[in-house]
């Protein structure tokens, strides 16, 4: 590293690098390492017993199932929203566009109590759903609703620049070659959007799996039915079962790391394909 820096006349490489590494280690790496270290106090068998316990497995199933479902809803409506926001003019578009980021800006606890109130039996939405036999609040469906809310911006925001970048010539070429509008979308536009869509999907999924604040109010938190893994970690901690909490947290950490690598890989491919597109 220092060899590369010596080539350079700009100052501050060592100071900046030193501070970056130190701060990264103190705030992120060492704490995470300490947790992994703490989990080694458990034997492999103990670890396995906790991670594969009935309640833990059920919570992982619920967490992943709801997150996947929410990410898929976001993929579908994300494509639609991004498309409409880029392509179609309508009054108040700038306002709507800014509002898309609300889930990033609104504290999760606020989202949680609001959604729980909206979808409760007497809530604005719940009172129309419940007569139809659809219970959302305090069921796994409520978890999906909360996770859809917090994951909503990811797909829209990764897709928007890609749709903006699509050259009109591409569509014109498809049209001159005799494609219908639907064929143009399915065969030309959608493939161009796919890498970004996958990236946004994975980002939303990754965020949903770790989510806590917005879910716990609406989930009902019944063990084996609507208890998510982050909540299980918290309850184990509150019962002073530190080892159990740690083991589950390590499982979550591994999952998030894998998803992070997946996102990085996807983004790298996305950047490459966009660069290739720009060249062509």
């Amino acid at each position: 590293m220092s060899v590369a820096a010596a080539r350079h006349v700009l100052p501050g490489f060592r100071l900046g690098m030193g501070y970056t590494i130190l701060y990264l280690s103190l705030i992120v790496l060492l704490p995470l390492a300490a947790m992994v270290f703490k989990s080694t106090e458990l034997t492999a068998a103990q670890f396995w017993a906790i991670a594969s316990g009935e309640r833990a497995l059920a919570s992982l199933r619920i967490t992943f199932g709801a997150s996947l479902l929410a990410a898929m809803i976001n993929a579908v409506f994300g494509v639609l929203t991004a498309w409409v926001l880029v392509r179609y003019p309508f009054p108040g578009k700038r306002f709507v566009d800014a509002l898309v980021d609300l889930p990033f800006a609104l504290p999760t606890a606020v989202a949680g109590i609001t959604l729980a109130t909206l979808y409760a039996g007497n809530g604005w939405i719940g009172r129309y759903l419940e007569p139809l036999g659809v219970k959302v609040a305090f069921t796994p469906l409520g978890i999906v609703v909360a996770l859809t809310f917090i994951g909503l911006p990811f797909v829209v925001r990764t897709l928007q620049p890609v749709i903006e970048d699509i050259e009109p010539e591409l569509e014109e070429a498809a049209a001159t070659l005799g494609a219908t509008r639907w064929q143009t979308f399915a065969r030309v536009l959608f493939p161009a959007m796919l890498p970004a869509l996958l990236t946004g999907f994975t980002l939303a999924l990754s965020r949903a799996i770790g989510e806590y604040g917005s879910v716990i109010f609406i989930a009902g938190n019944m063990p084996l039915i609507s208890e998510i893994t982050p909540l299980l970690i918290v309850s184990k901690l509150e019962q002073y079962d530190v080892a159990g909490a740690t083991a589950l947290a390590v499982v979550m950490l591994v999952i998030s790391f894998v998803l992070l690598l997946a996102v990085n890989g996807l983004q790298w491919r996305l950047a490459n394909s966009r660069r290739a597109g720009a060249r062509a």
């Binding site: 990264l24 992120v28 790496l29 704490p31 995470l32 300490a34 947790m35 703490k38 990754s206 965020r207 799996i209 770790g210 989510e211 806590y212 604040g213 982050p230 909540l231 970690i233 918290v234 901690l237 530190v242 909490a245 740690t246 947290a249 979550m252 950490l253 998030s256 790391f257 998803l259 992070l260 996102v263 990085n264």
Partner: peptide
């Protein structure tokens, strides 16, 4: 590594400091 905290569940983020 700088991106890592985005991927980690907030609950885990709190837990590491408790540990």
């Amino acid at each position: 590594l700088i991106d890592l905290p985005f991927a980690v569940s907030p609950v885990v983020a709190g837990l590491v400091f408790v540990l």
